[in-house]
Design a binder for these strands. Structure first.
Length: 597
RNA sequence: CCCCUCAUAGCUCAAUGGACAGAGCAAGACCCUUCUAAGGUCGAGAUGGGGGUUCGAUUCCCUCUGAGGGGACCA
């Protein structure tokens, strides 16, 4: 919350010292609380320019911050938030905030409630303040399009689809929280060649009754069966291509089959999204863009961007050391690259976003470099306007890619079922007297939460090796741990019969355990902002885990309800603030909290 | 052959170029007549090899090894 202010203090001090530019100095957090709240490496970087010892410069900066030049027109003042400054070898400058500043923040949190963390409140954060000095949200006036989930029609959603959906939703939530106008778009794969296979399978060996009874399962069987048969008889793939072509050219029967599968698939997706608590604003699938493709190709030609090659049409990119993007096959059919270009053009025209984020697995990195560069040459977007937010794959227990074709995947339906039943078993054991309805609710929230958190707490770049026990561990650094911590706080608040303590003497919160928590709470907004900037929800997860950890330490040793009147009130306020922060953070990750569990 | 990720404790994962590399699981010893033990406490345990840049490298660069993915007519 005070990072920007600390930054400004240092910048001014450097100016007073006659060092105008210290490139890339940062304000960050010391490794532990004993070393202060904020730290900077400015002295060590300035040492290079000034050619003096870092410690010497650190001392100089320290004394300038403490007594800045007052003759300046801007009327530089001593900081009102810094208690003391310490210099530590080899040249760190550590800032300690005044306890009353940290304590004062508590009232803000209780007032802000579910908005806490979304806004900069301190007046020195001018980058997000209006002329009147009123705090505004960072993302105000900016639009961001987020493309995530993107399942394929006629394929079941399996663990491989989880990451895009969960990470995408978290990033969506974070940006929305920060005040951006967020557009979530589910780019459903409803036009691909794979669909021809299904049409063929449907016509030749579908069991219509099973399809009606259990659409998802039977559809999956059709897909797997097709691939099994195609292995023996390669001609099947040719037949599938014929079906695809007929369908794309408007063949009535094939369109009818396509519509049927699309409708049923979307129903199935929606069941999954409902379980996950995911809502995506738009679902403009690939089919939506088909009528624009001809224009994309012809204008690419007109601009001299596209050219013919071996009967196909490509956009050569060798100038940029990138393989060419093919936009039309030699048989005249278009490809997903073509659709992607149309999609970018459409999104820019319709929403004029500052950025378009593609939450798509690492395996498509090459494709997106081609598409983005092509879109740039075509003038659809500026460089870096479209960003591929890539992530590692979910690998099978054998350490290899899950194969849909062989039907070896773990379906999301099954994953959820297992998670919920494991959670159910534990609730039953821990809290048998709860009502059945409540147990059901808890099982679902805990089970689904565990799955989401398992993913979101990891750095998105690393591959995940699927493991039931790891994914569904309800102890340690997991969603249930955070939810449990929240439920513990709620339990105390229920007993105290206050929803939030309004009046309290914040200065009573002097215990080291309390101060650690207070000092952590002021960092929440910075954590959310950074998670957004880096597209890394795990930064929030890590923060929440530490916060919960600190609360549980406090919980073991510091009584709340049994404390003397004023102290009790102050501690109630403190734990309420922790509850608010946990809830807000988890909500950003798309994870629900529970009053009891 | 080219491109993208990754390599940290027995296992699964953290760590904006910074100060003694953090967790969880597993294994060991403790804490429920005190606000929910899905918790807490105490020990043990790690940066693939070799160079380089830097005051400082798990992080950046080069190289080697290993893993996963991609490489115009699938998405």
């Amino acid at each position: 919350m005070y990072k920007k202010e600390i930054y400004n203090l240092i910048e001014k001090a450097l100016k007073d010292l006659g060092i105008e530019e210290v490139p890339n100095f940062t304000v960050s957090y010391p490794p532990n609380e004993k070393m202060g709240d904020y730290t900077t490496n400015a002295a060590m970087i300035a040492a290079k320019i000034w050619k003096k010892a870092p410690m010497e410069i650190a001392d100089a900066i320290k004394s300038k911050v403490k007594s800045p030049r007052t003759t300046s027109l801007r009327g530089r003042q001593k900081s009102k938030v810094v208690e003391k400054i310490e210099v530590a070898p080899p040249g760190f400058i550590n800032f300690y905030l005044k306890p009353e500043v940290v304590q004062k923040n508590l009232a803000t949190i209780l007032k802000q409630k579910d908005k806490f963390g979304s806004t900069w409140f301190d007046k020195t954060h001018h980058k997000s303040l209006t002329a009147s000095g009123k705090a505004i949200k960072i993302g105000k006036g900016k639009t961001i399009v987020i493309d995530y989930s993107a399942p394929n029609i006629a394929k079941m959603m399996h663990v491989g689809h989880l990451r895009s959906t969960i990470i995408g939703q978290a990033i969506y939530n974070i940006y929305k929280f920060l005040g951006y106008k967020t557009i979530g778009d589910n780019h459903i794969g409803d036009w691909g060649t794979h669909f021809g296979k299904l049409i063929y399978a449907y016509k030749n060996f579908a069991n219509k009754k099973d399809l009606k009874k259990n659409f998802a399962k039977e559809m999956n069987r059709l897909y797997v069966d097709f691939n099994v048969r195609a292995k023996e008889d390669e001609k099947l793939n040719d037949y599938a291509r014929v079906e695809t072509k007929k369908f794309q050219e408007g063949d009535k029967e094939n369109i009818k089959i396509w519509k049927y599968f699309a409708r049923e698939s979307i129903k199935e997706f929606n069941r999954i999204y409902k379980m996950l608590g995911v809502k995506i604003d738009y679902a403009l699938g690939e089919s939506f863009y088909q009528k624009m493709l001809g224009e994309i190709i012809s204008s690419a030609f007109k601009k001299g961007v596209a050219s013919r090659s071996q009967g196909a049409i490509i956009i050569p990119l060798e100038k940029y050391n990138i393989p060419p993007l093919m936009i039309q096959k030699s048989d005249g059919a278009t490809l997903y690259g073509t659709t992607d270009l149309a999609t970018i053009k459409y999104r820019m025209k319709k929403w004029n976003p500052k950025k378009i984020l593609y939450i798509v697995a690492n395996e498509q990195a090459g494709h997106f470099t081609q598409v983005f560069k092509s879109a740039e040459i075509l003038g659809f977007i500026a460089p870096k306007q479209a960003i591929h937010v890539k992530f590692g794959m979910v690998l099978g227990p054998d350490g290899k890619k899950f194969s849909t074709r062989e039907g070896k995947v773990i379906l999301l339906k099954d994953l959820f079922g297992e998670a919920i039943s494991r959670a159910r078993k534990i609730v039953q054991e821990k809290n048998p007297k709860l009502s059945d309805a409540e147990k059901r609710k808890i099982s679902k929230v805990v089970g689904i939460g565990a799955i989401k958190y398992n993913d979101l707490s990891q750095n998105r770049f690393t591959d995940i090796t699927f493991n039931w026990d790891k994914m569904l561990d309800f102890r340690g650094n997991s969603a249930p741990y955070l939810q449990y911590t929240y439920a513990r706080i709620k339990s105390i608040l229920r007993r105290a019969k206050v929803s939030a303590a309004i009046k309290f003497k914040q200065e009573l919160l002097n215990d080291e355990k309390e101060l650690v928590i207070l000092r952590q709470l002021i960092l929440f907004d910075e954590v959310v902002e950074r998670a957004g900037e880096e597209f890394m929800p795990n930064i929030i997860a890590e923060y929440l885990y530490k916060l919960a950890n600190n609360f549980n330490l406090f919980y073991e040793l510091v009584p709340v309800l049994k404390a003397e009147k004023d102290l009790r009130q102050a501690r109630l306020a403190l734990i309420s603030a922790v509850a608010i922060t946990l809830k807000n953070g988890l909500k950003l990750l798309g994870i629900e909290t529970l009053e009891r569990m």
